[in-house]
Simulated assay, not measured.
Amino acid sequence: MYFEKIEEFSNLEMSYVSDLSRGFISRNKNILKNLELNKFTQFIYEKCVYGTPIFKLGSGGNKILILSGIHGNELPPQIANVILLNQLLEKKLNHTLYFIPFACPKSTMNNERIFNSMDLNRSAHINNSLSNLIIRAVESLGIDFVGDFHSTAYNSNPGIESVFSSKSPTPESYLIANHISRNVGSEVLSYDFAGSSYKGAVEDVCNLKNIPAITCEVLSPFSDVGEGAVLRSFSQMNSFLSYFGI
């Protein structure tokens, strides 16, 4: 995967996971009204018109991915991811951070959970699905840890603020989840073995490939931004990074 240096943002490099997922993020009014439209945020929107962008900051240390938007109608983590990227843009980092704020711009544009008739968090094991292409990018880049950030509505699954993890085959998944829980209070939901409940979650596929991963959920109505949900997701992301001393 080739990363291009972005001259107007001196610490930033970017590439694309896929060009099949392109969409106009700014057509999602709930995204637009909850993000400051500065130069960098506008840049991210523009890049999403061509597919799923992946951004890189820093070098050395662990390679860590912050992922959001696997479900396009789960808005708070996508907003929080862009805010985090904005805040870290000029920081000196001791690790290599990768960001996919909008995993599927088309789904986010349309406030849809699925893409090409697939739930991307049930199809990461299916060859050439969009979430499978994200897994391939994780492998090709040698990413060491993955945080996948979602939101969940009341009376849905899981329906509570939580951190999913598994104890095997990557026990560090469980350690990271407990670190986040202690920091921000999200409930740990853990499986003894990755993928034992259902197949195809990004977190589970990563863990089965011995890449420690967790899934964080905050409460918010689907296709909307619940009060405080962006801040809660942002706190989960910061707690995930703090596990690595960032």
Rank of each mutant, 00 (worst) to 15 (best):
D19M: 14
Y174T: 12
S196Q: 10
K91S: 10
K167V: 13
P77S: 03
C216G: 15
V17T: 04
V205Y: 00
S239M: 01
P212Q: 02
Y198I: 00
N238V: 07
S235P: 15
E139M: 11
K33G: 11
S181W: 06
V188H: 04
V205D: 08
Y16T: 08
C104L: 08
N34Q: 08
K29L: 12
N111V: 10
S131E: 09
G228T: 06
I211R: 07
R27F: 08
E112M: 06
F193T: 15
M1L: 07
T215C: 10
G226P: 03
A103S: 14
R22Y: 12
S21N: 03
F24E: 14
L97G: 03
A137L: 14
T170A: 12
N30A: 10
I126P: 12
T152A: 02
Y45H: 11
N207H: 02
N132T: 11
F55K: 05
I64A: 04
P212G: 00
Y243H: 00
S186Q: 10
I160S: 01
N207S: 07
L35E: 06
S156N: 13
F149M: 07
M109P: 13
S107Y: 05
A80Q: 00
S162L: 02
S186H: 12
Y16H: 00
R122G: 09
N116H: 08
S131N: 10
F222A: 12
V146K: 04
N207F: 07
L35M: 07
E46T: 12
S196F: 05
S151N: 04
I126C: 12
N132I: 01
S15L: 01
M14T: 11
P101S: 01
T108Q: 10
L88A: 09
K47P: 11
K47A: 12
F9H: 03
K167M: 09
K5H: 09
E46R: 06
K56G: 10
S165N: 06
L12T: 07
I143D: 08
R182S: 15
E161T: 13
L12E: 06
C206R: 02
K39A: 15
P221I: 07
F244S: 05
I160P: 12
I214F: 04
L175R: 11
Q236A: 08
E172T: 12
L67Q: 13
K47D: 13
I64C: 01
Y198M: 11
I246M: 01
S197P: 13
P105N: 01
I100E: 08
E13H: 03
E172K: 09
S166F: 06
T170C: 02
I54T: 11
L120K: 01
R136N: 13
L93E: 05
N38V: 04
V202A: 13
L241K: 07
A103Q: 11
P105Q: 04
N183P: 14
L84T: 01
D204P: 13
L65C: 07
